[in-house]
Amino acid sequence: MISLVVVFPLVYSLWMSFADVNLLRTTGPALELFGLSIPLFRYVGAQNYVRLLADPLYWDSFWRTAYFVGAFVLETAVVGLGMALVLQERFLGRPLMRSLLLIPWSLSRIVVGLLWIGLLDVEFGALNGLLYRAGLIDSYISFLKSGFSALNVLVSVYMWNQAPFATLLLLAGMQSIPTEVYMAAEVDGAGYWQRLRYVTLPALRGILFLVLVVSTVNGFLMLDLIYILTMGGPGNETTTISWLGFQTAFQFFKFGPGTAILYTLTVLCLLLTVVYHKVVFRKLDAEQI
């Protein structure tokens, strides 16, 4: 089943990345399979890739993606951990807070985008409204004005959506730390920060690693927020690789170059999987002993 809905399309996409696919004029051979005719298009070798790697727009998007992913992973880890540390404390209504954690995470990214437009818009944004009321600004700020600010808005909005999940994982990890370890630390006279540094964080290493990998992959793949918030602009300054590939494939139906761009992303994800796999399985082996 999975091979049917994943492997075959994956191979077909790979093939397209080596072909001249222009949907406006469908030419070239077709693959006859179970009575279906699947167009194969004209094989052009590595041409799509060669052009891609020579295109400054691709490299601009590449480095922008790197920044986006880096900033996103960092923010997610820091905010995710921060929220976990706060929620770990003893207080009234703790289960309720855990439920609230799920709200940003369970919204579709289209709604997440809409909702942040309501907060950040230069004409009616509530955040602008708040800052204005507080007298901190005398005219509304345009958060999507410069490309760099827009890119950071995307990072933070996506983080708002994703960090709660990291928090959930970290909270689960914290709960599995035996109380005795803390007791012992306290007897030794360790303060809050020392306990955090010498007990909590080392115990969470595995989960933190997981959070890093998952958010790296998610960062690479983010598409829908760009669609709703910036469409890759202003200029091309929020164009990441996934957006560039998506646009190339579906704005002018150049599936060849489009799939080539997306395949470079796929290779990156494959590498990440290898790393993740190694670590996870080493951990599994250790547990089995």
Partner: peptide, 20 residues
């Protein structure tokens, strides 16, 4: 110039700003 203009997706939405 209001920088938001660059991210508007139609001329109609651009001219709405002028309404204000």
């Amino acid at each position: 110039v209001n920088p938001e203009v660059l991210t508007k997706t139609s001329s109609t939405d651009t001219h709405r700003l002028f309404w204000t």
